[in-house]
Design a protein around this nucleic acid. Structure first.
Lengths: 213, 213
DNA sequence: CGCGAGCTTGACGTTGTTCAACTAGAGTGG
DNA sequence: CCACTCTAGTTGAACAACGTCAAGCTCGCG
């Protein structure tokens, strides 16, 4: 996205930029506070989630380096609409939105790239809405495992950096249910589980379960 | 949004514009087909919904005149990501996106307004995600009744133009459950029901139920 | 007058949560 | 080096929430 900018424009963005490191569990941005920065990780991993009632959260995304976030509030009510907290040791880079807004006035290609970014987020939310509301637990868990494998860890076998509770928060179920369905998948030979290490053995079956709901 | 445009720009948009009328139940745009137009109603009412598995739909919005839709696909994969069908006798105006894209290149203020529009949709989807995944039926139905009263009919009493099934599709429950919870609300004196006519009697209680989940 | 779509109601089954007990490993202090 | 504690994970039984199915109802419309 930033490749669309000239040298002068990049200098402008860099002017008020700063970087902060976070320990696991620390809050990078907090839902409801005023949104003054775009944020992007330079290292580590974080969870982006909606805070619901009774401390129940809905994780929308596992954020990795270079993904830009800050959310829909930046162009509307100037509030963050979700929280982001570090999962591992993480460095995050903060870009002042005032400077971004200056670029919007002058660089249509850059604004268009923001619009595309926003549209893609919107599409993903549609998929999530369908997954979370219309599928039952095995389908939702399959979606989460496919997401982790494809987008987060980019491998058929991965060492989970998130807890069962967080698997549950991703798939809208309790940690107990997440454990149970994972166990079922293991018993059916679809995945193998060794503590935090998950391997997908039957990708097609998992995709099938995801589709069927 | 279009007030940001010059006379010449409006002429450009109008060039390939056309208007079509739809009868109740007819499809205005169909999920998955190629997205060549922004659409806006000039009269009537329509439902905008995601098509799920087994003909189960999730209604995202009741669309009224002048609301612009066409969705996130227009700037990404050029597909519509939802369907829209007429609820009542409806006229819809189709604007060619090629012309919109020309304006994006030249008019940053217009592009910014599209970005704001997209951001607002995104925010609403966050609320929906929380409502639909974290609340139980009374909370979800309260959300829908408040939505209908505040945004769609703009009155405490309204003559429903949608069916119980559609109430269910809005709140992610079956038509039977929708009926039952509405009945409960009526018995508790929160609303009154007379066939298709609904009146909200205790707005605060309804808001309370929405908040509690 | 009869037909069909939408609405209502109840009984029943399924899905998913809650609660409680138990286990295993990771740090902590004596 | 050993108890002690804390957190994450697992498991089972009881329970609540919600969907399904079937039957009967109403009402507009031909």
């Amino acid at each position: 996205m930033f490749s669309l900018l000239s040298k002068e424009e990049l200098v402008l963005l860099n002017k008020d930029r700063f970087e902060v490191t976070f320990h696991p569990g620390e809050t990078i941005i907090k839902q409801g506070t005023s949104a003054n920065h775009f944020v992007s990780l330079t290292s580590g991993m974080a969870k982006l989630f909606l805070e619901g009632l009774d401390r129940k959260n809905l994780i929308l995304e596992i954020v990795k380096p270079w993904k830009l976030f800050g959310g829909p509030g930046i162009f509307t009510d100037l509030r963050y609409h979700y929280s982001v907290t570090a999962i591992s040791e993480t460095s995050a880079c903060f870009i002042a939105i005032d400077n971004v807004k200056k670029l919007i006035k002058s660089n249509p290609a850059f604004t268009e790239s923001l619009l595309i970014h926003c549209s893609l987020n919107n599409s993903r939310n549609f998929e999530r809405l369908l997954s979370l509301t219309h599928k039952q637990m095995p389908g939702r868990l399959a979606d989460v495992l496919l997401y982790l494998s494809k987008d987060v860890y980019r491998s058929m076998a991965f060492n989970l950096s998130i807890t069962r509770q967080e698997i549950g928060d991703l798939s809208n179920m309790t940690k107990e249910s997440a454990t149970r369905i994972m166990k079922d998948f293991e018993n059916e030979g679809i995945i193998s589980i060794d503590g935090k290490i998950i391997e997908i053995l039957k990708l097609d079956t998992l995709k099938e379960i995801s589709l069927r709901g």
